[in-house]
Design a binder for these strands. Structure first.
Lengths: 151, 151
DNA sequence: TATTGTTATACTCTATAACTATA
DNA sequence: TATAGTTATAGAGTATAACAATA
């Protein structure tokens, strides 16, 4: 995230109550922690999300992965480009419909996925450290309703 | 926010537990609501934040405002440009130190600030509707610790 | 020398429009 | 005609570097 390197001062009182401001900075802090945690593996949080989606229900086309992540298919192109360059995934045309590119994890991709998931989990734990276990649970549960009110 | 117009599907289970993913989409939803609420006034959430900081402890230099918002001073230039173009704030050189631009609210700016604060508050209320009052309180309080762990 | 505002530039993440190849 | 992937392009929000005016 650009801006993550910005100073993060104690909030001025007139903004400390604005949810948008708090969300921005909380997310930014989590982003910093996750980025740092994943750096040794050469990937970032967005790329881990792609890996997780592929790992869960392989193999999918680029469009399927994009839809499952609520991203545009043009954004997915460069994301898969990066992962392919790192040797973590492989594209291959779907024999049944040669317009589609099926994206599959390589064995190195599989290994990276579980390592990265563990590191990202650690980063989340660090992020939540300022909260009691109870409050952290409420936050995690609430965040889901706030992000996806229908579900 | 670019991406706010993206489909916001029910989260795929493999991402529903990732805090980064939830933060991104929760923030995006709040952003949509706030932007829509403020649209009649011709300003956005970032601009409201600037107005609030100035309103609270006027008048400040651009650098002071930027620091209090944890933004770069180069970013503040265009933000103040926009608000000045709308006739909501006025720049004037500080007589005591002519390097500094003091930014002050116009009377229209003051009026817009309290109208906007009310509308943004409404948007936050709508945003929090999926939660019980109790959980909403925990979230608001926790967000502050998560964003600014030192304070 | 150091600081404030400014400009020029660039980077990240995202989207829309238009192209290619398939269907 | 419609769809999947791609490319070119653009826009929002942010930063760094360098410059002018002022201290």
């Amino acid at each position: 995230m650009p801006g993550s390197s910005a100073v993060r001062p104690v909030p001025v009182p007139e903004l400390a109550d604005r949810l948008g401001y708090l969300f921005k900075h909380a997310h930014s802090r989590l982003s910093d922690l996750t980025t740092a945690a994943l750096a040794p593996l050469g990937i970032n949080g967005r790329q881990l999300a792609v890996l997780l989606v592929i790992a869960k229900e392989p193999p999918g086309s680029q469009l399927e992965i994009a839809t499952r992540m609520a991203l545009d298919r043009t954004t997915m192109v460069s994301l898969v480009d990066e992962l392919e360059r790192e040797g973590l995934v492989e594209r291959s045309p779907d024999p049944a419909d040669r317009r589609r590119n099926v994206v599959a994890l390589t064995s190195r991709g599989r290994e990276t996925t579980w390592k990265a998931a563990a590191l990202a989990g650690q980063a989340e734990k660090t992020f939540l450290e300022p909260l009691s276990e109870r409050d952290a649970d409420v936050v995690k549960r609430s965040l889901r309703s706030l992000a996806f009110p229908g579900s």
